[in-house]
Simulated assay, not measured.
Amino acid sequence: MAGHDEPVTSPDQRKPTNRKLTYTVGIAAIVTMVAYLYGNHEGRVESLWLGGFAIVIALALITDWVLVRNGLRD
């Protein structure tokens, strides 16, 4: 069987995420969504979706930053 040759690893042995890259991409996504608010669309549904997604991404980034800063997340 093919699965017997794979090494057993625990979650703490895996390579950590690059937080700087994650924050940069998240901020770039927020800036892009806010820039899309200024366009030639007439309805407000698009604006609500874009604003909502931008707020959700911002909250996720802020929450992660606070948890890392307080030592509650690696």
Rank of each mutant, 00 (worst) to 15 (best):
T24E: 13
A2M: 05
T63Q: 05
R69D: 00
R69Y: 01
V25F: 11
T9E: 15
L48Q: 04
R73A: 11
R19L: 13
G26Y: 11
E46L: 03
I55P: 05
P11T: 01
D12Q: 10
R14W: 14
Q13P: 01
V8G: 00
N40W: 14
W65C: 02
L50D: 11
G3N: 10
L48K: 10
G43Y: 10
M33A: 05
G39K: 00
G43K: 04
V25N: 07
N70Y: 03
L67V: 00
Q13W: 07
P7V: 09
A2N: 09
L72H: 14
G51V: 04
I30P: 06
L72I: 06
L21H: 09
A58T: 04
A54K: 09
H4P: 04
G71S: 08
L48W: 12
I55N: 11
L48C: 03
R73I: 05
H4K: 13
K20P: 00
G52I: 00
I62Q: 00
L50Y: 10
V31C: 04
G52F: 08
K15A: 13
L50E: 12
V56F: 14
K20Y: 09
R73V: 06
A28S: 11
T63H: 02
E42H: 15
K15M: 10
I27V: 13
V66T: 02
I27K: 12
M33Y: 12
L50G: 03
T22D: 08
P11I: 08
Q13I: 04
W49T: 05
L59V: 02
A28R: 03
L50R: 01
T24I: 12
P7F: 10
V34L: 15
G3E: 09
R69K: 10
G71W: 02
D12R: 04
A29P: 03
G51E: 06
D74G: 06
I55C: 14
F53A: 07
V8L: 05
T63Y: 12
V56W: 11
T9M: 15
V56A: 14
T22S: 07
G39S: 11
F53K: 02
I62V: 15
